[in-house]
Design a protein around this nucleic acid. Structure first.
Length: 670
DNA sequence: CCATCCTGTCATGGA
DNA sequence: TATCCATGACAGGAT
């Protein structure tokens, strides 16, 4: 039986960042030891934590804490659990980031097993441990290179294995871990001095399972350590929302193998699908373009797999690290593919242009290998596959944006931002993915435009996507105008190629197609505007990221200010108590008629008055200060008396009792 | 109608 | 010198 009545629409808003913010707040609370309700003792060390967090992450704690009726329990862990293994796990519970080294991975694994830590299962340990325990973790030194001199200068200090950054993070993670995923280091340059980045055994890796990653504040959370993004082939999101600034839905969507959900989503299932999206968005992908010097960074999502390397990175935000954006990455490819002698174009294509990997090897000086170490590669690949199981398949499949649009069509602009995804990041633009997929791409021919240079890429640039989607409804848009011009100039190739291809491919195509001057001008103009358009997008995104980051800092500073004010008020209360106690004490002592009675009464009046707090807090230089000559004996006695009465008088003294009395005896009114 | 935001484009300077 | 990129400024469309 159906119930007749006014039908009420129920809407659901699900924040994609809420959980992340909650976790961050919990971590801040833990660091301040606020609201902590459980103490964990490990090897005589105590850790304050929140029982709910521990119980939600660990089966062991769940059992212990849910069976604990006592408030503020203290859980003493057995000897099986060590500080070395427990501390990273505790940090993981609050940050979703596991810091580990080759040395402590086993211990962490053992403790995680014992404590039943969730989310750190096979994906993390079953592969990593053998890699790190069989000696394969001893990475060979790899050398990267950078275009900028500054980067080079930085790298010079990195080059020496013994010349490591002495800084150490607050969490005890050595900053001198100089390991860098060198996936893209070779993409940097062709002419500058090369940065050498040795892989050491001290590398600290970070497995980041944080659902969403606030790039703006991540560096603060990481104690200033830079994070390297392994996996950055996602789109550029509109920066109008935190989600947009933080996640990379394209990869997330693609990575789950749940695309059928998107395809099959009917209009009525939008919210459910959005829920799926939110889950998918939990993948932490950094979508910012790299700078040349940052291309030796790699990170992987959901497993945000970071290797840290301190001095190389700029302390800005991760946006400077991530080789995601098609424009910049293509630019990078441009730079690396720019042969000094362009006349060779077309003559040595098969040698230089067959694949990026091959290109790298040939353009890279022999003394600066750009390869990652075997173990690093394997680890990165494993993590990529583990957290992004459909990586390889989705790379070759177009993003079902149409389904997304269809689904969102009935729900306003729920996914309007997806239209702005910068899908121009071809897989090969990502150094990490380039390495992963290079083998598969060896078969591509060299005489024609490589796949990554064309719109055949599964990823489309925003301009291209806009061209394809919006021009249908917007007749006088710029792209449609371009289309008309395309018809006028009669280009022999799709105009979409112009902006997406690398410079080398662009020049190659121009040479091959024998364009007329009009065509040439048009093509170059289109390319220039497209590049500039994407540059403007990046620039604006950086601005917004900066704003977000500054807002976060403001919030943090405000909380610190509140804390300081609280401390201040508490100190004032304490001082008031001390003053009252001293006043009472002096009054009681001044009634015995001793020679010091007068002075004690004066002191009592003084203590009961509103003397400045700063005066009370002024440390007394010496309890036996010499008094004035005319009353040296009395004052000396008073000093001795106060020193005896108040052994801690150095913290609660007046300027000097004798000095004070010198004033107050002659002028009793304080 | 106006304010605001977003986006594309141009000009410019540095690399 | 040519090119790329970042960025400020401006204009036009959308809301």
């Amino acid at each position: 039986m159906s119930v007749d009545g006014p039908r009420t629409s129920v809407f659901t808003f699900q924040s994609a960042v809420h959980s992340h913010h909650v976790l961050r707040s919990l971590e801040e609370l833990r660091q301040k030891e606020l609201l902590c309700d459980v103490t964990v003792e490990v090897e005589r060390r105590s850790f304050r934590a929140h029982s709910s967090v521990l119980a939600s992450c660990s089966d062991y704690f769940y059992t212990r804490l849910t069976n604990h009726s006592r408030p503020n329990p203290t859980i003493r862990l057995p000897d099986e659990v060590t500080v070395e293994g427990f501390e990273p796990l505790l940090q993981f519970a609050y940050t979703a980031k596991l810091h580990f080294t080759k040395e402590n991975i086993l211990e962490i694994h053992r403790c995680a097993e014992f404590l039943g830590f969730q989310n750190l299962d096979k994906a993390c340990f079953e592969f990593l441990i053998p890699k790190f325990s069989d000696g394969g973790g001893t990475s060979k030194k790899v050398k990267g290179k950078s275009k900028s001199q500054a980067s080079h200068e930085k790298s010079q200090s990195i080059c020496s294995p013994n010349d490591q950054n002495p800084e150490t993070g607050e969490d005890g993670i050595p900053q001198d871990a100089s390991t860098v995923m060198q996936a893209a280091s070779a993409t940097s340059s062709e002419e500058s001095p090369k940065d050498c980045l040795p892989i050491t055994n001290d590398k600290v890796m970070q497995l980041d399972l944080s659902p969403l990653y606030d790039r703006g504040t991540a560096y603060h959370m990481d104690d200033g350590q830079d994070q390297f993004c392994l996996q950055n082939c996602g789109p550029q999101l509109p920066s109008t929302s935190m989600v947009a600034a933080e996640v990379c839905p394209f990869l997330s969507i693609s990575s789950t193998g749940d695309n059928e959900k998107l395809h099959s989503s009917a209009a009525g299932d939008i919210l459910a699908m959005e829920d799926d999206f939110q889950k998918e968005l939990a993948m932490d992908v950094h979508c910012e373009p790299p700078t040349d010097k940052d291309l030796n960074i790699a990170s992987i999502t959901e497993g945000h797999f970071d290797q840290r390397e301190g001095p190389l990175m700029s302390p800005t935000d991760c946006s400077q690290l991530c080789p995601l954006n098609s424009a910049q990455s293509s630019g990078v490819l441009d730079s690396i593919s720019d042969a000094p002698d362009l006349s060779n174009i077309g003559t040595d294509d098969n040698q230089v242009f067959d694949s990026n990997e091959q290109t790298f090897s040939e353009l890279t000086p022999k003394d600066c290998s750009t390869e990652r170490s075997t173990v690093e590669r394997e680890v990165a690949e494993h993590l990529a596959k583990g957290f992004w199981p459909d990586l390889s398949s989705t790379l070759n499949e177009p993003l079902p944006l149409d389904s997304i649009d269809q689904s969102s069509a009935g729900n306003g602009s729920d996914f309007h931002w997806l239209k702005h995804l910068d899908l121009g990041a071809a897989p090969d633009d990502c150094p990490f993915l380039r390495d992963l997929s290079s083998n598969d791409r060896q078969t591509s021919g060299g005489d024609t435009l490589s796949k990554e240079d064309t719109e055949d890429s599964p990823c489309m640039s925003p301009i291209n996507s806009r061209e394809n989607s919006e021009c249908e409804s917007d007749g006088d848009c710029e792209q449609c105008g371009s289309s008309e011009q395309v018809q006028e100039v009669d280009l022999p190739f799709p105009v979409e190629q112009i902006s997406s291809m690398t410079r080398r491919a662009f020049l190659q195509m121009l040479k091959r197609e024998q364009l007329t001057p009009e065509q040439l001008e048009f093509v170059q103009d289109v390319r220039r505007r497209s590049k500039n358009r994407m540059a403007a997008q990046r620039c604006r995104k950086r601005k917004l990221d900066c704003i977000y980051r500054l807002e976060g800092e403001i919030k943090k500073l405000r909380s610190e200010k509140e804390k300081l004010l609280q401390d201040h008020s508490q100190l004032k209360l304490s001082i008031e108590d001390v003053r009252q106690n001293l006043s009472g004490l002096c009054q009681s002592l001044s009634t015995d008629g001793t020679p010091q009675s007068e002075q004690l009464q004066a002191l009592a009046r003084y203590f009961s008055s509103d003397c400045p707090t700063s005066v009370l807090l002024t440390p007394m230089a010496s309890p036996s200060l010499a008094g004035p000559d005319q009353d040296a004996h009395a004052n000396s006695s008073l000093d001795t008396f106060l020193a005896d009465t108040c052994p801690e008088g150095d913290t609660v003294a007046l300027r000097s009792p004798t000095a004070f009395l010198q004033d107050t005896v002659t002028d009793p009114a304080p």
